[in-house]
Amino acid sequence: MLPQASRVIAVERETRDTFTFTVAAPGGGSGFAPGQFSMLSVFGVGEAPISISGDPGEPDRLVYTVRSVGPVTQALVTRRPGEWIGVRGPFGASWPLAALRGKDILIVAGGIGLAPLRPAVYYVLRRRGDYGRLVLLYGARSPQDMLYRKQLSAWSYLPDTQILTTVDYGGLSWRGHVGVVTTLFRYARFDAQRTAALVCGPEVMMRFVLRELETRGMALSDVYVSMERNMKCAVGFCGHCQLGPHFVCKDGPVFPAARVKRLMERYEL
């Protein structure tokens, strides 16, 4: 459970407050599954849970997309290539992609919630024949807040792939969709009967998305969500990440939606 020192290889600015950085996987890397997270440390400042946003097909490097929202994430995003951070993990339950072979994959992401879903996209693209359509709906606050814009644009040209993006507010130079992420569903082409949906974003957004998915004829049993809670240990000992009967760190962060939908609707649970 001790962190391992890992060297930062590259840092890339995504938005005003969000950076993607790549570190050498400790010990050459033991691999990770899409949807898992690590505990990242800046020694002397603290530790925070951060989703892995890189390609599971490249286990020798770990990629994280970090938004600066507190002291630890602020310290993380100011690391420069060559500097060291502490890494523990990977931890947690992943998107059950192996079990979803043969299905269309619908990914719904909001804001920084795209980060833990990007490995799922890489995974499906590496095994394209194993899956049907790949549909990605992504909402961000504004065009300046969108992650991975070039990559999303590149993916949109792939066959059987639909990438739809939206922003809550756009300026005159934004010719894309404006409206909350649920307003994209009317343009998404997927067969509800043979689709599995993977959802990550702010909890309130996920609640609206779950409702929308049900309206579109999807069964909750085909829907997975990634939850966020305060975490200190990532292995179920610190008690911080409890969500009713679940520990988000070890029972999640990815949950079947049917297991947590009721809990998500309970205020201040």
Partner: peptide, 14 residues
């Protein structure tokens, strides 16, 4: 849709 938009979901609560 407007209500969800007003929540300004993607900004930190603070």
């Amino acid at each position: 849709a407007m209500r969800i938009q007003l929540l300004d979901l993607y900004s930190p609560a603070s």
